[in-house]
Design a protein around this nucleic acid. Structure first.
Length: 546
RNA sequence: GGGCCGGUAGCUCAGUCUGGCAGAGCGACGGCCUCUUAAGCCGUCGGUCAGGGGUUCAAAUCCCUUCCGGCCCGCCA
């Protein structure tokens, strides 16, 4: 039984980039083009960044193979005939806005437990079903991340009859099926039937199969109660028959069946599958279906802010939200890293990820010193991470972009960035535009995390402030100093001097400045910041006139 | 209880497959600068490679073992 160890596929080679190691394994099998890379999830609720392991790990493998001249298709199954097992805490509309259950008809959802996602009405009423709603959302996110993926609806495949022959084969060889699966699941006994019909009356997926008629291509069933976690889903007692298109294979069989139908050559999967579904899937593929299983590779789960991604615990972030904070290429870069390392995705420390990406980019263009290993990896992976390598591209350091975000004036942002040398004289217009787009993202990051960059220049209206006479006099003097024309360092020094002359605590005087400009107690380094603003405004504000 | 993955500087991680000087970025600290205030430049510090044992001339790397975090071994996916 079994091929390569899915833990070794991406790591045991001298390849600098793991996707090449996977591609090596696939090529060693001499597959026919097009090579099919698959992934898949149940559209059970709000898609989050964890789901993108399933898409992006496959994407890098696909790209590695394309670079070697293969034709590659990346497919993604929406496992939408799976049953809704528990009501999610939150949902999201098609724009990605996450909403609580209270805002939709939660009661209606509760009556649909045990039914396939595609048999449940869309709580938002905009798609044909619950399953289609969340699949659509995932498709949109995949598009936003820039990964070309063919989405496949499991339900549609069952309805179109694509699964017919596999279902017939499995039922015809039910003895082998039981024997193989029983090595992995204790509950499999002589009565086990590897098909789950959907009740024509109440719509739930029921396990009460009473008879199989291979010639007619149907199963008979009684709609019986079914356990789902701690709950029991009540069957309606209906006795009926279902065709092979009116139900589904149990997951352990469905996965290998998908491999057969779609001709899958490689599939990345999460570590939850590694010890259970994968070995049984390989076994079933070889010894029940008689096909060669794809190359499998395991990826580790990552945490969000140190904790498991969990929609019920509220610890999730969607792709939409993340793309408000960083460029798609930075997001893709995160998934280009070693798949087996357990790592954290931290919005709090997002600047680190962006910095790392910026360095990665500069390594590719040979602009910074790097180890041989880094260079090799960048040369291979960078072109897959960005849409198109362009050397003139400009990256404003993320935290500096956050500083620029303190002012809303786009011209001022550009002007400051130029003065600080982050935008070269001869930079092309497109590069400037892209570089400054990061300012909005960094601003959003500062706002979202409420971190030390979350200050907003109060330009249009002067904040409420009440200063004592000494402070007012000092501010007036500082205004005159600024009016006379000095650079940032001089202004910064003068703030200290002015405070001393008026016998004001240094910290208090800075606080007065932050109050006037940011309506806050703290802010960026004041002197250099003020020097970058237009002088008339700064002088007037220091004089509390505007 | 059994199996599997991960643990390397304060943080984020390379390096482990194939044993050969302990690495990078960020942060911190110091300086550039009469300055407790965050952006630039230069520099410095920073390590029980989770702990212990073994093999070896040589171990982050190989073997055994313990600890910590997570996954699987019921159902489901």
């Amino acid at each position: 039984m079994s091929g390569e160890d899915p833990y070794d596929v991406a790591s045991s080679s001298d390849r600098a980039f793991w996707a090449d190691a996977v591609a090596d394994t696939i090529e060693a099998r001499d597959p026919e083009d097009p090579i099919v890379v698959k992934g898949g999830v149940s559209p059970s609720g709000v898609p989050h960044i964890g789901h993108f392991n399933e898409i992006l790990r496959g994407y890098f493998v696909a790209e590695a193979l394309r670079e070697r001249g293969h034709e590659v298709t990346q497919v993604f199954t929406a496992d939408d005939r799976d049953a809704l097992r528990k009501i999610p805490r939150t949902l999201a509309d098609l724009e990605g806005n996450v909403v609580g259950l209270g805002e939709v008809d939660a009661g209606a959802l509760g009556r649909n437990l045990g039914k396939p996602y595609t048999s449940i009405p869309d709580p938002f009423g905009c798609c044909d079903s619950y399953g289609e709603h969340f699949t659509t959302l995932l498709e949109r996110h995949a598009e936003a991340v820039g990964v070309p993926v063919d989405f496949v609806s499991n339900t549609e495949r069952y309805e179109a009859g694509d699964f017919d022959s596999v279902v017939a084969h499995v039922l015809e060889h039910a003895d082998e099926a039981r024997e193989v699966l029983s090595a992995y699941q204790d509950k499999v006994d002589d009565e086990y039937v590897p098909f789950v019909p959907q009740c024509s009356e109440c719509g739930i997926l029921t396990e009460g199969v009473t008879d199989v008629d291979l010639d007619a291509g149907t199963v008979s069933y009684v709609c019986t109660d079914r356990e789902a976690g701690d709950d029991t889903i009540e069957g309606c007692g209906h006795e009926g028959t279902a065709t092979f298109r009116e139900g589904k294979l149990p997951w352990r069989f469905e996965w290998p069946a998908q491999w057969q139908i779609l001709g899958v050559d490689v599939e990345p999967f999460g570590k939850d599958h590694a010890e259970g579904s994968w070995p049984s899937g390989e076994d079933i593929a070889e010894n029940v279906l008689g096909i060669e299983p794809p190359v499998g590779m395991v990826y580790e789960w990552f945490t969000l802010e140190g904790d498991a991604l969990s929609s019920s615990a509220g610890n999730i972030v969607t792709v939409d939200e993340v793309l408000d904070l960083l460029e798609p290429e930075v997001f893709r870069y995160f998934f280009a890293k070693e798949p087996l390392k357990q790592r954290d995705f931290s919005i709090e420390n997002l600047d680190q990820l962006v910095d790392e990406f910026d360095r990665f980019e500069r390594v590719y263009f040979g602009e910074v010193d790097a180890t041989e290993e880094e260079v090799e990896r960048a040369e291979r992976a960078y072109p897959m991470v960005v849409d198109e390598p362009r050397e003139e591209r400009i990256r404003i350091p993320y935290t500096f972009a956050a500083v620029l975000g303190m002012t809303e004036d786009p011209d001022l942002r550009e002007q400051i960035a130029r003065k600080e040398g982050h935008i070269p004289e001869d930079a092309p217009e497109w590069a400037i535009e892209e570089a400054l787009a990061r300012v909005e993202r960094a601003r959003e990051w500062a706002r979202r995390t409420g971190n030390e960059f979350d200050y907003e220049l109060k330009r249009t209206e002067i904040p409420d402030a009440d200063f004592d006479a000494a402070t007012e006099a000092a501010l007036d003097e500082l205004a005159s100093f600024v009016d006379a024309g000095h650079d940032g360092e001089e202004i910064q020094g003068e703030i200290y001097e002015t405070a001393k002359r008026h016998d004001i605590e240094i910290g208090d005087f800075f606080a007065a400045g932050y109050r006037l400009f940011f309506d806050d107690d703290e802010g960026p380094q004041l002197g250099p910041f003020l020097a970058k603003l237009d002088r008339d405004f700064v002088v007037a504000r220091l004089r509390r006139e505007q």
